[in-house]
Design a binder for these strands. Structure first.
Length: 801
DNA sequence: AGCACGCCGACT
DNA sequence: GTCGGCGTGCTC
């Protein structure tokens, strides 16, 4: 009886998004397991694929090709993750292969090499052929061949003089070090070393007096016995130490971290922890919404709940926004749980991520802390899942697979029968509304632990301040507050809401504006690099000295970029040391942490930056927080604009005066009466929630309605529009009367990278047939592929623009 | 995604 | 007459 494996192949297209049947060779029958990565022939290529099932009969009635090799000794995805990958693919309209790849560390994603091999038929006298191959039998397939060369190769291929081979490479490799096994006393007793070999003798007596167990690396052994690594090597050559290969963890975290003990809890914290622990113990797949202001001690509640899960022999998963995954935060978890913690964040190299992933898979790590993708950590027996700052939009991935970590967490929790804790000072409306309906249990931590009052918040009306303003961007109030803070040798943080406010180059004479040739958007001026950059496609151009239209030399810059604000500020406060933190200054690896560290150690007086400084920043030394333009987000045509503004301002306001000195917050705005700004200044989440719910109800938006955004794009605008209308037309008959279809409309920036984008937004309450319908619509649509049309489906999009 | 098969314009 | 353009269709 032949065994047949169903394999999903590494080709992410709609046509190939299905399992293919492969014969399992006899010698692999006992090895091949669902969840394993295998190499299979596909057409004339060789590809990586995932085994998703094993059967004794093929559904395919052609000749089956055999699996070529297995890439794993144990399945890369266990049963739970395999099923989860299928579920995520279905619910996010992604390809199955894409969701499976997403679950693995980057180092485990296949790399393909195309090789050219010459046979003994290969003509020895051909000049180009000799140059091409040199002495090698196999070479990488040559790039950029001329037409004549391609033809020559094809001819040789026909004559069996050359053949093309495909190789699947697995880059994942544990890092190893040379080491030695512990020798037995019996072996040591028999060793003789010459008298003059002082180092050897020292090592030998050392080993006899203080033997070690297991294995040590060369370096460890050398240090331990105070000899050189060469001495260890010599002993190994002499044969009385046995060589060993040790797997090294690339990311050895500060092993010296001092362990801390659980802190005593306030009555509120105790009540919350008790509820969570009960749910862990009773294996309830229940969701809690932990609503607690900044400084109310949510983290301690998390840590003690995790401890309870560990005590019951279970594991824990804790998600944190990437930006909040700071060394301080990570340190806190280590201090409590030591090496049982694995951390997954973007600062790790691929190799380090792979090591952490393996530690989790091998159950050496019981607690996983990480950003969005850590929700797929290969934990088994999960006892609790925590999502901190649950309102953060970064939990939703904005390219395929467009999953929301919160939804994935809820699904895994059901599988493991464990509770989910969603924590936030400003919960998303979706979550807070579910708590209102009793779907989630609302748990509150209303008080700050040290009862430190919230800093006073001043709202500056920038419409009024017009005449008095020192510069267009600084009100007198903000400037004098900055001066005072500087005089007191205290630190300030200034936030600039950059969206839509980047510096542009314009001709004062004719009004010409530098635009991107590939996108419908103006280029942004980067003074430091002295060039124009498109933030959408990355196109770069030099800053012109003369206008290309009227040839005048009156090119000026306008708009408010962080760079420009920094210049203004430096002129206004010549003695201030200003540190700028934005996408440009943090691009390099670790740039973010480096800037924060410099500021934390007092190397600057003012930290100027974009939204990223509102989050993951915790410096007790900061006494003034200024927001230069609070309301740029409010002008966005997005129903979440108010929610975002409220969350951001509430968060920023919580940053001032965390230490002993009182703080102050100054918010400059053109909408001083807007409820999001008013309520944020009072940190009044509950009122904001009630108010915003009314708005959402009237607008038929989440949480009252679900949304699905279809984005249709193609290189031709007419094709894009035509397909968008066709899709909208096909969609409407599938929907009930309560559903609303908006669009198609061109996206606000219609052309990006020479593709045109149209959108359709569907709002609905309950459409059981919609998911299936959308799938069918795309699978059956032949015209799409033909016209290079791409359709992206985003369930519950975070950005609608 | 690749890769091949297949049917129409500018070259040896 | 052939080379080669990229439209169309398949990969277990």
């Amino acid at each position: 009886m032949t065994q047949v494996a169903q394999v999903v192949v590494d080709v992410a297209t709609r046509q190939t998004d299905q399992p293919y049947d492969y014969a399992i060779p006899d010698d692999l029958v006992s090895v091949v397991t669902p969840g394993m990565r295998v190499v299979v022939p596909f057409g004339r290529r060789r590809l990586q694929g995932f085994v998703v099932g094993i059967q004794d009969h093929a559904a395919f009635d052609g000749k089956l090709k055999p699996i070529q090799q297995v890439m794993d000794l144990e399945p890369a995805l266990d049963h739970e993750l395999l099923a989860l990958s299928k579920w995520v693919a279905n619910t996010t309209f992604a390809f199955w292969i894409t969701t499976m790849q997403t679950m693995l560390p980057a180092a485990m994603r296949a790399k393909y090499a195309r090789l050219l091999v010459r046979t003994d038929q290969f003509p020895a006298d051909d000049a180009w052929g000799r140059q091409l191959f040199g002495r090698s039998q196999t070479i990488p397939y040559p790039e950029d061949l001329t037409a004549a060369q391609t033809k020559q190769l094809r001819q040789w291929a026909d004559q069996d003089a050359v053949r093309v081979e495909y190789k699947v490479k697995n880059q994942a490799r544990a890092k190893t070090r040379k080491g030695v096994h512990a020798p037995t006393a019996a072996v040591l007793a028999q060793v003789t070393v010459p008298n003059r070999a002082k180092a050897q003798q020292k090592l030998l007596t050392g080993l006899q007096q203080a033997p070690f167990a297991g294995t040590l690396t060369y370096a460890q052994a050398a240090q331990h016995y105070d000899v050189s690594e060469a001495t260890i090597h010599t002993a190994e050559e002499a044969g009385w130490l046995q060589p060993a290969t040790l797997t090294i963890r690339r990311n050895p975290l500060d092993a010296q971290t001092e362990r801390d003990a659980p802190k005593s809890l306030t009555p509120d914290q105790t009540a919350a922890t008790d509820q969570f622990v009960t749910a862990v113990t009773n294996k309830q797949a229940h969701t809690f919404l932990l609503e607690g202001v900044t400084g109310s001690g949510k983290t301690e509640v998390y840590l003690q709940t995790i401890q309870a899960a560990l005590d019951q022999g279970r594991t824990a998963l804790m998600l944190v926004p990437e930006i909040a995954l700071t060394p301080q935060m990570v340190h806190r978890v280590y201090a409590r749980f030591g090496t049982a913690v694995a951390v997954l964040h973007s600062g790790l190299s691929d190799g380090e991520k792979y090591d952490e992933w393996r530690r989790i898979q091998h159950q050496q790590a019981k607690i996983v802390v990480g950003a969005r993708s850590a929700v797929f950590a290969p934990l088994t027996n999960i006892g609790v899942i925590i999502i901190d700052e649950e309102h953060e939009s970064s939990y939703k991935q904005d390219d395929s697979p467009r999953y929301h970590a919160r939804n994935v967490a809820l699904h895994r929790a059901k599988t493991f029968h464990c509770p989910v804790i969603l924590g936030s000072a400003t919960p998303s409306l979706e979550s807070r509304a579910r708590a209102e309906k009793g779907v989630y249990t609302l748990v509150r931590l209303p008080e700050r632990i040290n009862e430190r009052p919230l800093p006073p918040v001043h709202i500056i009306d920038m419409r009024q301040a017009g005449g008095a303003r020192v510069t267009p961007d600084f009100s007198p109030e903000l400037l004098s507050a900055l001066e005072n803070t500087l005089a007191k040798h205290e630190q300030s943080v200034l936030m600039l809401n950059r969206r839509g406010y980047s510096a542009q180059a314009m001709c004062r004479n004719c009004g010409w504006i530098a635009k991107c040739p590939n996108c419908d958007i103006s280029l942004t001026v980067h003074l430091a690099a002295h060039k124009l950059v498109c933030h959408y496609c990355g196109h770069e151009a030099p800053i012109p000295t003369r206008c290309p239209v009227c040839h005048s030399d009156k090119i000026r810059f306008f708009g408010t970029g962080t760079e420009k604000i920094e210049d203004q500020l430096q002129k206004l406060l010549p003695t201030a040391r200003i540190l700028r933190m934005d996408a440009d200054s943090t691009r390099k690896k670790g740039g973010h942490a480096r800037i924060l560290k410099a500021f934390g150690s007092g190397q600057a007086d003012i930290l100027l930056g974009t939204q990223m400084i509102a989050k993951g920043l915790d410096f007790p030394t900061v006494t003034l927080v200024g927001v230069i333009n609070a309301d740029t987000a409010l002008g966005m045509p997005d129903f979440r604009a108010s929610e975002r503004t409220f969350q951001l301002l509430t968060q920023v306001a919580g940053r001032a005066g965390r230490g002993d000195k009182p703080g102050a917050v100054i918010i400059q705005t053109y909408n001083p009466d807007h409820y999001a700004i008013q309520l944020a200044s009072h940190q009044d989440y509950e009122s904001f929630f009630r108010r915003e719910m009314v708005v959402r109800h009237q607008g038929k938006y989440p949480p009252y309605y679900y949304t699905v955004l279809l984005t249709i794009s193609a290189p031709s605008e007419s094709v894009t529009a035509q397909e968008a209308y066709r899709i909208a037309g096909d969609l409407k008959p599938l929907l009930s009367k309560t559903a609303i279809v908006l669009g198609p409309t061109p996206r606000s920036i219609t052309r990006v990278n020479n593709r045109y984008y149209y959108q359709i937004l569907v709002k609905f309450k309950k459409e059981p047939a919609l998911g299936r319908g959308l799938h069918n619509l795309l699978t059956n649509s032949q015209s799409l592929a033909k016209n290079h049309v791409q359709v992206a489906i985003d369930f519950e999009p975070q950005q609608i623009m």
